[in-house]
Amino acid sequence: MSSVLRRPEIFMFIAGVVMGLTLFGYFFNVPQVIDLVTWFQTFATHVSFFAVWLGFLTAARIHIYNIQRRTPGVWYFSIVMFLSCLIPFLAALPEIAKPSIETPIYTWPFNWVYTPLGAALYATTGFYIFSAAYRAFRARSLEATILLVAGCLVMLGNAPIGEVIWNQIPTINDWLQMTGQTPGMRALNITAALGIVYFGLRVAIGAEKRVTTFGAGGG
């Protein structure tokens, strides 16, 4: 039975039916189909929430291994990881039935540890962009030179100091952003959208063998 359920044709059939109904619901106003598609979407959202548990189990496997083997340099971080999962979870248990959990021990680490850490990490992006620009923006060819000059003009146009240097910089910047880059951006968007549709079709008919042979290995 389990080998029958793992047959690729079953996955392809499900993908095909869901794809067909979703497309139909997008184009045609048939309330029954739209309701069904909404149900599919809600179902998928719920699955992705449960997948966080799967993610936790996957991460736990690695961290338990680290702790058991005392992997040098990382095992104590694995303990921190488990504690930071366990303590808020236990603290939130009494409020599990409520629509939102507001226990400080649950919200405080999120608001005042996780969020500032994320913000700090994001703030480092500027430094990385700086060193990447220093390394990459070199006039190695005609195309690279055009990119370099355009990039510098846009940067100057983005900052008021550009206007102080030359009052035509904002005009050039506007032209580059509104006229120069828009056709390229549109072309990229259109071709990426076509790429998605074709990729979806290949998955649906089983031509995308690397993912549609899912489960074919048995076991």
Binding site: S48, A51, V52, L54, G55, R210, F214, G215, A216, G217
Partner: peptide, 15 residues
């Protein structure tokens, strides 16, 4: 960072 992709990734790598 995507939990629901784990089964697909796991199976893809195994294969």
């Amino acid at each position: 960072a995507q939990g629901d992709a784990i089964p697909l990734m796991d199976e893809t790598l195994r294969l």
